[in-house]
Design a protein around this nucleic acid. Structure first.
Lengths: 97, 97
DNA sequence: TCACAAGTTGCGCAATCACGCAATGATAGG
DNA sequence: CCTATCATTGCGTGATTGCGCAACTTGTGA
């Protein structure tokens, strides 16, 4: 029996979060969303990539549970799901020095 | 001029940290190292992978600046570089719920 | 020098990833 | 309906990743 501090499942979940944050453009999205809701096309413009690409990045973030979406007419607004997302991002920045 | 909260370079560095932590086995290594220095073969046993594979994982962690190594005879001991590494890991776990 | 043990590095493979592009939904207005 | 807009999905591609295996390097001691 190996000395395991947290369950393997907990590690897998944490790794999924890290994977979702392992891309500069997705981190840029999180920064934009720190200022409040934004539409896909707004994010696409701010981050500097095409709309389909942004939609996929947002899908990754949503699958990881970092953001949620809300539809208003033809526009879909994304927002951070929780302040802990920013806490994690800041913790990464501290390690990055 | 886009609203950029942090420089692109800061995002790239944070993304590198996240990528280094985006693997369950590497997170397991960090947990083991939280208890102090450990050799490559010890980590290999505890995490449950082959030594060459562990060496590569450690190389990833070292390139990201999360761990350092020390040589004693033929044995190489790895340790966490800083407590902020564990802080970041805990922050990820909080998001993971 | 020889043998052995501990790590590292190189190689090939299957899987995943980020991206560009085209096609397909969904919604509002005329 | 028709059309325009906003967004998602599907496909192909080049790049990266994690792994197993073999070969090599490094350090120790007889």
């Amino acid at each position: 029996m190996e000395a395991t501090f947290t369950s393997e499942d907990a590690r897998n979940r944490a790794a999924l979060i890290a994977r979702a944050m392992a891309d500069p453009k997705r981190l840029c999205v999180l920064e934009q969303l720190a200022g409040g809701e934004r539409s896909v096309s707004d994010l696409s413009h701010d981050v500097g990539c095409q709309v389909p690409n942004m939609s996929q990045h947002l899908s990754v973030l949503r699958s990881a549970g970092l953001v949620r979406s809300r539809r208003d007419g033809t526009t879909v607004f994304y927002r951070l799901v929780d302040d802990r997302v920013l806490d994690a991002y800041r913790a990464l920045q501290l390690v990055a020095g």
